[in-house]
Write a protein that binds this DNA or RNA. Structure first.
Lengths: 205, 205
DNA sequence: AGTTGATTCAATCAAATGATGGAATCAAAT
DNA sequence: ATTTGATTCCATCATTTGATTGAATCAACT
């Protein structure tokens, strides 16, 4: 059974997919309450009623966006996990950082919305369970912090959270932090990787 | 010359101060656009017109809140810096984490609003310059990452940002992360300190 | 008690916002 | 060409939200 979201992703040129893309970007920039349906519709170049026709109420569209970025993260993590399998730890860490940081800098709304959801209450709060705990355990296992995927210690989970959030921070905070560092975009991305590697290598090897 | 904010803080029982306190808490929970002036007024138990009488428009109140939490952080950082002066590095780090984490868990709206400002655009965006760069340099110096307060390398600033944001992450994300860890509040706070110490000690000593 | 200035609230506005109904348009199938 | 179903837009609602006005209340001082 194809969900509404899956159907939209099948054809990226479909109106439904275009709206979802704009919604990702704008919800990512302004958050749930900072975004109006009119802002999204205007970005796509359509009337708001068209938006409502395809996605229903604002909360449902937001929910679809969250699911979408979660799916994307899940796939990316799987991909990275396959790529680093079997290599020595320090190499695994460095490659994982390289790939994840690049991916997230290309899709900053992922970091924005992820952090936004961690930190902020929303007034008409739907809960919308996500798979964070599973991801955490998978990553912990992949980093050699646990013998068993299904039995990861709290310490290990905290360490993974620490690293994952640190990555998101640098991506989401780019507009704020980069001017402070007087870096151009590429230098800032490199500095992000360097900093992450510095802490990671010191802590885990 | 006493600013409007300073005047409010002089008497914590004043209406102006009570409004500011509620505004801190609620802006911290829901963000700028997620908060309505009515929510704040209701929390204080007053009419919105009274709120407007004391603080003017919503954006001005928000600005006062930001200044307030910044002042608080500045004072706390100074206090911690004095306390750790002269001690060996590993001790300095551990004490600083202990004190800052406790302080921020007592005032979670600081972490919430700090991260919110880093990561989110606001529609009617006033910029409102804050002293982040100065704080960064001071902390870097205090952590032994720079010889000179006024000449701190980009690498050092990135490392400090990394740590500071990591602290904020655990405080702001408590409601999200703590259930995943199945910790009570105190255990979660301790786990936060342990995790921070783990990375800090590995990286800097 | 009366005057004065500061504070508070009820009532109200205008604009923004989420949402919908129905007419118009488009595209594919017949 | 007509029919049919899907899509899009215009016009419009009802509510929420930021903000103000003016009358009432309070407190301090004479």
């Amino acid at each position: 059974m194809a969900t509404s979201l899956e159907k939209a992703k099948q054809n990226p040129d479909s109106m439904k997919a275009k709206i979802l893309d704009a919604a990702r970007r704008i919800f990512g920039e302004y958050g749930f309450h900072g975004t109006t349906t009119r802002m999204i519709a205007k970005a796509v170049g359509i009337d708001i009623s068209t938006l409502y026709y395809h996605w229903g109420e604002k909360g449902d569209l937001y929910e679809a966006v969250i699911r979408d970025i979660n799916d994307g993260m899940g796939k990316k993590l799987e991909e990275v996990e396959k790529k680093i399998k079997g290599r020595p730890l320090s190499e695994r860490l460095e490659i994982a950082i390289e790939d994840m940081v690049d991916y997230l800098f290309e899709h900053p709304e992922i970091s924005n919305l992820t952090l936004f959801r961690y930190f902020m209450k929303t007034r008409h709060g739907k809960e919308l369970d996500v798979r964070v705990p599973e991801y955490l355990s998978d990553i912990a296992y992949s980093m050699g912090l646990a013998e068993d995927r299904r039995n990861v210690s709290t310490e290990a989970k905290m360490k993974v959270l620490f690293i994952m959030n640190a990555i998101h921070n640098f991506i989401s905070g780019e507009n704020f932090f980069r001017p402070m560092m007087q870096h151009d975009r590429n230098a800032y991305i490199q500095a992000t990787k360097d900093t992450l590697n510095f802490f990671n290598l010191a802590a885990f090897t």
